[in-house]
Design a protein around this nucleic acid. Sequence first.
DNA 1: GTAAAAATTGCAGAAAAACGCAAATTATTA
DNA 2: TAATAATTTGCGTTTTTCTGCAATTTTTAC
Lengths: 248, 248
Amino acid sequence: MLKKERHTYIMKQINLHNKVLSSDLSQQLNVSEDTIRRDLNELDESGKLLKVHGGALSKSYHFPFHQNEVYAQEAKKQVALKAIQLIKEGMVVLTGGGTTMIELAKMIPFSLEATFFTISPLVALELVEHPKLTVILIGGQLSKNAQINVGASVINDLSEIKVDICFLGANGIDAKEGITDSDWEVVQVKKAMIKSTSKVVILSISEKLNSVQKMRVCNFNQVTHFITELNPNHANLASFSEMNIQIL
Amino acid sequence: MLKKERHTYIMKQINLHNKVLSSDLSQQLNVSEDTIRRDLNELDESGKLLKVHGGALSKSYHFPFHQNEVYAQEAKKQVALKAIQLIKEGMVVLTGGGTTMIELAKMIPFSLEATFFTISPLVALELVEHPKLTVILIGGQLSKNAQINVGASVINDLSEIKVDICFLGANGIDAKEGITDSDWEVVQVKKAMIKSTSKVVILSISEKLNSVQKMRVCNFNQVTHFITELNPNHANLASFSEMNIQIL
DNA sequence: GTAAAAATTGCAGAAAAACGCAAATTATTA
DNA sequence: TAATAATTTGCGTTTTTCTGCAATTTTTAC
């Protein structure tokens, strides 16, 4: 039995019972507990489960999304800070989801008067208390891993709006391959978002630079701004400098 | 049973009852009180509860200033507890918003397989981690005071679905006047919700009994169940007893 | 003030994890 | 195809973690 097979088996058990024991898995898969532990360590590092003494637990059950700490929060705050400077009074804005986008929402000044469309319930809730904002949450099926609304109805609703500026997070970003993502539903929605706007702003921490995911969202000629926390003339950004994009 | 499992169990009990006893937990989890005390100490040190002699207390309940306090939370939890007993495997459920509904969402067991439509981002986020639930958030303009989605698009989307059971909170409830509310947008949405379902379950703490708001949502012949925290033959419920409604 | 209940502390046995290493398997290259 | 390199796996040893028990101290209740 191959490693990948064990991994999928383990994840199935996790999703079924919310927990697994190293000893059980060792018996069921006919490998030593050492091997199981190594498997669990890998799955833990890639964030798919939570390894504990004796086995592993479902991450979602024991650590709900909203109480997770934000990874690389400082960098994301810097990125968000740059981004909000692009928002002007009276604008119609569209935002995606993700932790960077939530940081952005937290930074929106209370005095701003604008209209925000979003597919993220978390972003919407951050903005709802702002007195001068109109917040419109585009509904759909709530994606379990991305925590944004996805599906045909979202794409349909997006096709009927036209906004001034759209802020998007990126999972994979590469000078050649453009913006990429690993979840099919998410890619579909992001594509629809890009169609609904005149300015596309990509937010991404530098760590994700030069990484490529399974599916393409768009290439760089559809992007108007790219924001990261690095200095614009940093070596890692050299490959982007020739493009017709504003780098912040 | 693994340590972390005990921790989640303890936190669930804390969130449900606002307090736990070491002796109870020892029995329920089949471990010595020593172990429970060690668990409680760890959870206390990480700030998740408040350890006291004999057990532990919910932090939010006893120090409500940190988080936004839920008014009459105990009563709302009792109401929600009754309500979830109406949800059966495989059902299609529609829920409104409000604090009672969020308590209900928190109590949904992880093992339930069902489809949830909701107009409340907070309810949706509570449910999104449940592995077997499909959560569909009906989008629209996010109402600043009710924290639910409202507007024509919500009503339109609601007109296109048909659910088994619909849970609704009530601001005003009166034997003569029926269910009433003070926000026009909210009333419109609630009316649309009632049209989309076969069973209408009203959840309300007894305090709101016999109060009448500005606008009518519906009268009692559209309601199938009414849940409050009082004993069914309590005097205050006398006026409802003749109606064709199940009172819980 | 006394007795009962609960908490703390130290300790020991058991279970699990980490580590290093060797054998076996798989992939890569000539 | 053979040889080499890289990865994976299992085993023995050491280290750490977990848990219950007993003795002692502290808190609570009557």
